[in-house]
Design a protein around this nucleic acid. Structure first.
Length: 410
DNA sequence: ATTGCTGAATGG
């Protein structure tokens, strides 16, 4: 028996991919304005029309109240025609729909603005570093300093090498979003028995709902310590042979703490299939692609729909009697020679963590504006790609100048 | 979405 659990990576195949090898950076910018197909004058007319006609109540996001009913039937399946196209009931209210959406864009939350269905753990960590920088990265993802990206790709390849030590990576072609989420689930299903047997795994996907938002991440490594505790290890490779300063360490601590929060939730049955599908807007009855089914077969699972895989995963997580994570460890290695620079044990502070989550999520929910670095963290700007165009920085610098002037006047 | 909504993390 070859028992090495092959982790698979979904390799999405679309017509576009087949078409050409185009530079990866350029493809995202095409359609910044979702309404480029409607002219400004048309929009104004529409606006006027509705101003007088006026029933443009803001549509509450369809968050259904949790009644106690069993989950099986309450899943929201989107209506879909046989050919996979979405139908518009009336066909004649398109302009009004456009208007409502256009108006909504004016008050939309960052989550909606960037079309995000979930927030990643790295996202939250980036926020911690500097929210302004994170926003610039989302809006203008170009220009990474060559030196910096070198450090990052070096980090990536070290991580990949370590991953290959514990399992193979199998490529599985996926055709739908359901397919790629199914792959994540199948990966989890393959890793559970390894954990149960006391083994070590890498790249364990975690997700769950926190403070109303869906959060997704990947645990670097899970294994058992000499004391028999389930230990999370997060490897940080460093371009210089120095340990990080607090500003960086803080974000590493939050990163692993979030992983624990999500993992613990998953193994204690807090991950509900329908919550999962509602957040990610997945279709539970979506049939899985042939390659995905085939891959599941190899692990001895017969599944046909996405719901099958998801429910199997949730059940396995809940009833496999996996422990929660006992210890959180950060390992710092020097990229130059691979030497260990130091380790850190992170103490998990649930309340503090949840408070921080609430604060950082209030941005995503549109409850507050972004907050750039504090004055005392201005050193971060020295290595920021966006410092020259940064509005936050300009603002802060101005206010500092004024402060100093006032002091002198005293 | 009658166009359509992400591998996450990589490091500072």
């Amino acid at each position: 028996m070859m028992s090495s659990p092959g982790k698979c990576t979904p390799s999405q195949v679309t017509e576009e991919d087949a078409a050409a090898d185009r530079p990866p950076c350029e493809e995202k910018r095409e359609d910044e304005d979702s309404f480029s197909d409607i002219s400004d004058s048309e929009l104004l007319q529409l606006q006027d029309a509705a101003e007088t006609g006026g029933s443009s109540l803001p549509v509450e996001k369809n968050k259904q109240p949790e009644d106690g009913t069993s989950s099986l039937q309450s899943v929201d399946v989107r209506t879909e025609t046989n050919n996979g196209l979405y139908q518009d009931g009336t066909g004649k209210n398109i302009s009004r729909d456009f208007l409502q959406r256009k108006r909504k864009t004016e008050v939309e939350t960052p989550l909606e603005k960037y079309f995000l269905k979930y927030v990643t753990v790295t996202n939250i960590c980036a926020q911690l570093w500097c929210e302004q920088q994170m926003v610039y990265k989302m809006e203008q993802p170009i220009l990474a300093e060559p030196e910096k990206s070198a450090a990052m790709s070096e980090g990536s390849s070290i991580h990949l090498a370590r991953e290959l030590e514990v399992h193979d990576i199998v490529s599985v072609t996926t055709q739908t979003r359901e397919d790629s989420w199914a792959i994540k689930c199948l990966n989890i299903l393959a890793m559970i028995p390894v954990l149960q047997a006391g083994g070590k795994i890498r790249e364990f996907p975690v997700f769950g709902e926190l403070d109303g938002l869906f959060v997704v991440g990947v645990i670097d490594e899970l294994g058992y310590s000499s004391k028999g505790e389930l230990q999370l290890r997060e490897l940080k490779t460093r371009a210089s042979p120095t340990l990080p300063r607090y500003g960086q360490k803080r974000s590493h601590e939050i990163q692993v703490s979030l992983y624990k929060l999500l993992f613990d939730g998953m193994v204690s049955g807090r991950l509900q299939p329908d919550v999962f599908m509602q957040h990610l807007k997945l279709r539970p009855e979506q049939g899985l692609g042939p390659q995905v089914k085939e891959h599941a077969m190899k692990s001895g699972l017969t599944v046909s729909t996405f719901r099958d895989v998801l429910e199997l995963t949730c059940l396995n997580l809940t009833y496999s009697d996996l422990p929660m994570i006992d210890s959180l460890k950060l390992e710092y290695c020097y990229q130059g020679d691979g030497s260990l620079l130091g380790c850190d044990e992170v103490s998990f502070q649930k309340e503090t963590l949840l408070q921080q989550v609430t604060f950082y999520f209030s941005y995503w929910k549109g409850l507050r504006d972004i907050q750039g670095v504090d004055i005392e963290d201005a050193w971060k700007c020295r290595m920021c790609e966006y410092s020259s165009i940064c509005e936050w920085r300009a603002q802060k610098t101005k206010s500092i100048t004024i402060q100093t002037l006032n002091k002198r006047l005293k």
